[in-house]
């Protein structure tokens, strides 16, 4: 059984003009020790998926359907009091901007200690000792001297290291890292990703790595899920998705990444823009922009279908219509 099972998860936002469906029947698993990358454009629902899993959707957003199971136990319908011990202890979270995720008024050591003591039975002295070790482990120089320093006394990259320590200090089994490097300098990004990867491996932690940076995914993730307009359009082993993308959207996404090997005048781009949530077309959400669109795409929504080594939500891979598409 997978560590985390997300089964047809649907998230809706009731608004004055009707209900917006921000996540539509999203399903995926994360195995123990696995790194799952989640990519997609802004607004595709990547971060929302993470927030829904740890039960921190911003109201009025709500889970309208589907299940989230951790070790086979449903966690999407737990009360606030029963969800609290799971956050941090079972599922940790790393947020995007390290400049705003740390409370400016408390020393980093205090924040580590309070997190560990919320979940583990530790004396003040043991917790402090562990806090020092965590700071050392995430690569804060002179950790013992820096433990009583405040967040503003660290640089952005150092703060993200502290955030990672905070997310991991109660030894969760899964970490949801929501764009952990987006707000950082390019030179720091690689360090942070390497650190995250190493820590996850050392502690046997599974990672759900949300990003829009394919490069990060390619070097970090075991599998990757590509999201588009609140749905997963392709999921599979990272190598297969990068080398032989099955879904036309993934193909377009890979085509738009600059390559060092080839010299290109202009990057390829996908024409058009992702639809707004209140105007998702019938059938496949990608159909207005898809170069391989055919009749069925505009009428019926495709499920994830086996497509070589990956699975893609595309009618091209349906035994019946896939064959017909080649005639078009």
């Amino acid at each position: 059984m997978a560590l985390l099972e997300v089964d047809r998860l649907t998230v809706e936002f009731p608004t004055r003009r009707g209900i917006l469906r921000a996540l539509d029947a999203v399903s995926f698993d994360i195995e123990v020790g696995e790194v799952l990358g989640v990519v997609g454009e802004s607004g595709a629902g990547k971060s929302l998926t993470g927030a829904a899993i740890i039960g921190l959707l911003e109201p009025p957003g709500r889970i309208a359907g589907g299940q989230v199971r951790l070790d086979g136990m449903r966690i999407d319908n737990l009360s606030r009091d029963r969800m609290r011990p799971i956050r941090g202890r079972q599922i940790g979270a790393i947020f995007q901007d390290p400049l705003t995720t740390l409370n400016p008024l408390y020393a980093v050591g205090h924040q580590l200690v309070e997190t560990m003591q919320a979940h583990l039975r530790l004396s003040d002295r043991d917790a402090r000792e562990r806090a020092v070790r965590w700071l050392e482990e995430v690569g804060i120089p002179a950790a013992r001297q820096r433990i009583d320093a405040y967040p503003h006394e660290f640089s952005g990259g150092m703060r993200q290291r502290v955030v990672i320590a905070l997310a991991l200090c109660a030894e969760p089994r899964l970490v949801i890292a929501d764009e952990p490097t987006t707000a950082l300098d390019v030179s720091i990004q690689a360090q942070i990703i390497t650190l995250l990867k190493r820590l996850a491996k050392d502690h046997g932690t599974s990672v759900m790595l949300v990003t829009h940076d394919m490069g990060v995914i390619a070097e970090t993730a075991d599998r990757v899920a590509v999201m588009y307009a609140g749905r997963i359009c392709e999921i599979g082993p990272v190598r297969a998705v990068v080398k032989q993308p099955a879904h036309p959207y993934t193909e377009g996404l890979m085509g738009s990444i600059p390559s060092l090997e080839q010299r290109v005048e202009r990057l390829r781009q996908i024409d058009g823009a992702m639809p707004r949530l209140n105007a998702i077309p019938r059938g496949c959400a990608f159909n207005p922009r898809c170069p391989k669109v055919f009749g069925r795409c505009r009428a019926e929504r495709p499920e994830l279908l086996a497509a070589g080594d990956t699975r893609a939500a595309c009618w091209l891979y349906d035994a019946y219509s896939g064959g017909r598409a080649s005639d078009v």
Partner: peptide, 12 residues
């Protein structure tokens, strides 16, 4: 964000 992060850390 830091309050959201505090929630994500499982503080009471």
């Amino acid at each position: 964000d830091y309050v959201k992060f505090a929630r994500a850390r499982g503080l009471s």
